[in-house]
């Protein structure tokens, strides 16, 4: 198993006597993209701010490459790069000046490294323009360049695709995957979108109301949760056939829902067709985050969202 780069144990935060983060435990390994999934207000951002040293935990410890964020702040930060929420750089400085500014705060980040990160994110053409003239996507790229200046081992990105257009989102996704696979970075990505986590991450922690409900590989988690939605003609006959094969629920507007099983789905379809049932629609569908939560918390977690 590869090396652990970030480890969090029993992390808690109490604000005004209200416990907001209730004892988180998780680890990031080299070369993996770790998703941090939860609805707004679940405590994602608070946790991330504790990881990067902006908020002091009430108790618990955070170690980055073995250095405690609290007692060894400067050493821990040497191995970490982050963007918390939007990359808020100085709009009145040029892109290059912004990078220079942050490079001056890092040991060993010289002009050569600045050029490297500029090339890495592909901002060569506009790097001497003021940041206030940049588009959101360019700012996001400059933010990543800034986070990579110190050659971090751990990269923490809070909602990295927030506000990007679909092309930008795809580009960002490829970029993050490349960083993890080629450079061996551990990347922690927070999101409230299940689809994004599914495409981007290796493992995912699901967080709700300040607690981690489950940590698992994306594959395992979604396999148990993914559904197929059928529209069949005639409905009653189709339902009867599917019932004989798997678990079926029916929605009010005449759709049938079965679990998704990669190997069996085709066979079910074949069976239906053979017996003369028309398959009008057959959709693989991710559960909405809310449904996922309901299932993971045993159906009793009303009021999430």
């Amino acid at each position: 198993m590869s090396r652990v780069t970030l480890s969090v144990s029993d992390l808690r935060k109490t604000i005004k006597r209200k416990e907001i983060i209730k004892g988180l435990n998780f680890e990031l390994r080299e070369g993996e993209v770790f998703g941090f999934l939860g609805p707004n207000g679940a405590g994602k951002t608070t946790t991330i701010r504790m990881l990067v040293g902006l908020i002091k935990p009430t108790s618990g410890s955070i170690r980055i490459c073995g250095y405690d964020v609290k007692s060894d702040f400067t050493k821990a930060m040497k191995y970490m790069g982050c963007i918390v929420e939007n990359p808020e750089l100085y709009p009145f400085l040029s892109g290059y000046e912004n990078l220079l500014h942050f490079a001056r705060m890092l040991p060993g980040a010289n002009e050569g490294r600045i050029q490297d990160v500029i090339n890495l994110v592909g901002l060569q053409a506009r790097i001497d323009d003021k940041v206030k003239t940049y588009s959101l996507g360019m700012r996001q790229r400059l933010g990543i360049a800034q986070a990579l200046l110190n050659k971090p081992k751990v990269l923490i990105l809070d909602e990295p695709t927030n506000g990007l257009d679909p092309a930008g989102i795809r580009e960002m996704r490829q970029f993050i995957r490349a960083l993890a696979e080629k450079e061996g970075l551990s990347v922690l990505v927070s999101s409230h979108l299940l689809s994004e986590i599914q495409l981007l991450c290796d493992r995912v922690a699901i967080i709700s109301k300040g607690e981690i409900i489950q940590v698992d590989t994306v594959h395992n988690l979604l396999n148990t949760q993914e559904k197929i939605i059928w529209k069949l003609e005639p409905l009653e006959k189709g339902k009867r056939i599917l019932r004989g094969l798997t678990e079926v629920t029916e929605t009010e507007d005449g759709y049938l829902i079965t679990p998704f099983q990669e190997r069996d789905a085709g066979r079910w379809n074949q069976e239906l067709t053979k017996q003369g049932v028309l398959v009008m629609e057959m959709n693989r569908k991710l559960p909405a985050l809310e449904e996922l939560f309901l299932e993971l918390t045993g159906g009793g977690g009303g009021g999430i969202g």
């Binding site: 040293g53 902006l54 050493k75 929420e85 942050f102």
Partner: peptide, 8 residues
């Protein structure tokens, strides 16, 4: 947020 997350 960027200023205070540097190793300084």
């Amino acid at each position: 947020k960027l200023l205070l997350t540097r190793p300084v």
